[in-house]
């Protein structure tokens, strides 16, 4: 397993509020600033900028088989972490509000909306994205669900597709793919504006009936 380390600011204790933290002289010593200077800076609104340097939190998470040791702002969503920091852009942003399913990934095997998941909550977890679904990587063998989406043309523009596929795999694993109607119900959190629904249902039922391990 690979180890990736991303450098960021030093981590601060989680219970330090921004301003009270800043005004502690012991912490400020690290910035080579005298307390009066820091107080003046705070008055000018510069405390926000200084505080930013301390607002990183450590995170250890396994993504697609790679263990990451990261330092991130606690407000970063799993979606933005994947896309903007880990450059795993297969997971898409469609609404950022958990309403469309384009960002669906697996966290410890369960499908979640990455946009509604603060990255910090995945501490110690295993995250699988569309890039990590197939064992063979980007040029190797496809996962049966990926192959079925191609066979049944379960997409058009392709933007919702990673989320549909991650959701579809989970749908079968959960035991919610016993009929087309059940699939429609349990896939309704994944919107496809191109309207490939009928083909997506066919693809999922094909994989389910084929009995391949998903």
């Amino acid at each position: 397993m690979n180890q990736h380390e991303h450098t960021g600011g030093e981590s601060a204790s989680a219970d330090s509020s921004r301003r009270s933290f800043l005004k502690q002289s012991s912490a400020l010593a690290a910035l080579v600033l005298t307390p009066p200077t820091a107080m003046a800076a705070a008055d000018q609104g510069l405390d926000e900028k200084m505080a930013a340097a301390f607002e990183q939190m450590p995170l250890q998470v396994n993504v697609n088989g790679t263990a990451h040791r990261l330092s991130i702002e606690p407000r970063v969503t799993l979606l933005d972490l994947l896309r903007e920091q880990l450059h795993l852009t297969g997971t898409k942003k469609g609404c950022d509000h958990g309403q469309c399913g384009a960002c669906t990934v697996h966290v410890d095997g369960a499908r979640v909306n990455a946009c509604l998941t603060l990255a910090m909550t995945t501490e110690g977890s295993t995250v699988t994205t569309i890039e990590g679904l197939a064992d063979g990587g980007p040029t190797g063998a496809l996962h049966p669900m990926q192959a079925a989406f191609i066979k049944h043309d379960g997409f058009q523009c392709g933007y919702c597709t990673p989320g549909q596929i991650m959701s579809a795999v989970a749908c079968i694993r959960e035991g919610h793919a016993n009929s087309p109607d059940e699939v429609r119900e349990y896939m309704s959190g994944n919107i496809c504006r191109c309207g490939a629904y009928a083909n997506i249902v066919d693809a999922i039922m094909d994989v389910k009936k084929g009995g391949a391990k998903v």
Binding site: T89, G90, T129, I130, L142, I150, F155, G158, T161, P162
Partner: peptide
């Protein structure tokens, strides 16, 4: 679809 593989793999 010729771009199917690109679309299903991210």
């Amino acid at each position: 679809r010729i771009d199917g593989r690109m679309k299903v793999t991210g």
